[in-house]
Amino acid sequence: MELGKMHTSRRNEPTYLAWSIFNTFCCCLPLGVVAIIYSCRVDHANSFGDPGRAQESSRIAKNLNIASLVLGLIGLIMVIVMLMIKN
């Protein structure tokens, strides 16, 4: 190791951006948009070396994506049930 240089291992938090985009178009638009915003915050915090903010934003993005997916599945099940009842 060279003098004056410290070895820093920085772990980047996952952004969940692809999942956020999928949820925006396929599951629940409002939660998906907010998840995209938090995913971008994770990316910015990772690039600026702010692990605390990156971890918190990553956790929020993940939870929003889970909620969006669950709401999308519930909505899909409700539509299927309504179509079956109608026929």
Rank of each mutant, 00 (worst) to 15 (best):
L71A: 15
T15N: 06
L69F: 05
N63Y: 08
L17S: 01
W19H: 02
M78S: 08
I80H: 02
R10N: 03
D50N: 12
L76M: 11
A45Q: 08
S39I: 11
H44P: 01
G72C: 12
R41P: 00
T8S: 01
F22E: 13
I85L: 13
E2V: 15
I80P: 02
G72Y: 08
V70K: 09
S58A: 11
L64Y: 04
L83F: 06
A61F: 15
C26Q: 15
V70F: 02
S47E: 10
S20K: 01
I80F: 08
G4W: 13
R41I: 13
D50Q: 12
Y38A: 00
M6T: 05
A45E: 08
L73R: 00
T8E: 05
I77A: 13
G4F: 15
L17R: 04
V70Q: 05
S68V: 02
W19Y: 04
G72E: 15
P30S: 06
R53S: 04
L76T: 07
S20C: 07
G52V: 05
L3N: 11
I60M: 14
N12R: 14
T8A: 01
I80R: 03
S20Q: 02
L64K: 00
L29S: 03
V34W: 08
R41E: 06
G75C: 12
A54E: 07
L83S: 11
G49F: 05
N65K: 01
G75R: 09
S39Q: 07
I36N: 00
T24G: 03
N65W: 14
V34N: 03
P51C: 04
I66A: 06
N46C: 10
V34S: 06
A67Q: 14
M6L: 10
I85M: 10
A35E: 12
C40T: 06
I77D: 10
F48V: 07
D50L: 13
A18P: 01
T24S: 11
A18G: 04
C28H: 13
V42R: 03
Y38S: 01
L69C: 12
L64F: 06
D50H: 07
S68I: 02
F25L: 13
H44D: 05
A18K: 03
V79K: 03
V42Y: 09
L69I: 06
R53G: 01
P30M: 06
L31H: 00
